[in-house]
Amino acid sequence: MKHSRMRAHLAGILALLLAGGGPATFAQETHIGGLTGEASRGKQLYRRYCVGCHGPLGDGRGENAVWIDPKPRNFVTGTFKCRSTPTGALPTDEDLYMSVTRGFVNSNMPSWLPLTEQQRVDLVAYVKTFSSSFREEKPAAPVPVPSESAANQQSIQRGSELFQKMNCWACHGKEGRGDGPSAQTLVDNRGYPIPPYDFSGGTRFKCGESNQDLYRILMTGLDGTPMPSYASGLTPAQAWDLVHYLRTLQINAKHKRPTADSEQKHRSESKPVGEELEGRANRF
């Protein structure tokens, strides 16, 4: 066992030497689709667009940070809300790319669609250099999102029972208005107050807007916030039931919800400027 591991190490070292790269480049390559991120180019963009809030050290202490609530993300700890990976794991490149692209509702983080895809990939590559975790830890496998079950009355009813059983109401409130008995006590991992999501407002979620995104939020949790992962408590079928029920709480949601397909299409069609942005303004 030990020997085979050793051999694997030696093979790895050899591969590194042949590739001509040090260990740092091993884990930090950034790929989105066919694009490869370049941290040095990302640094230039970061210095121009991100440094004001996230700071030169990536610790979320930029000069604007004191005026901002919620506070800018500290990249050094490697803790990220929007992931496709289990709680406690690092996000994938795609997760970070989508966060930069989407921005975060109810925060000062805008959507960076005005930047080209290549620029956003470069930014992801640079942001990853702030945390040693990306060098030290293997990326985790994404949480699988199985195909959605039928959203019928029975499913919604089961979801409503789960909302009660899983104590979702303790923070989000009996009607999902973000006014549960524990809502006022919630703080993020830096001790700043953080309100639970108010479903009645109908705004999109922090980490996306499709049913698939909602499923993922339930199963991965939003690390750094009080929202836990339900991966050890819900079966995939139960999680879909809960998704269907949660949708019924969005009583003020006005716009048509995009399906996973249209989101995928939207992603692949995202262009630097112009119509794309206007399109988004209508949808969000």
Binding site: T77, G78, T79, T87, G88, A89, S133, K165, M166, N189, G221, D223, G224, T225, P226, M227, P228, S229, Y230, A231, S232, G233
Partner: peptide, 15 residues
């Protein structure tokens, strides 16, 4: 929900 400074943070629900 452990809130570490030096370890990875995670947060798991347990029914």
């Amino acid at each position: 929900h452990p809130v570490p400074q030096n370890n990875r943070e995670w947060n798991l629900s347990q029914p």
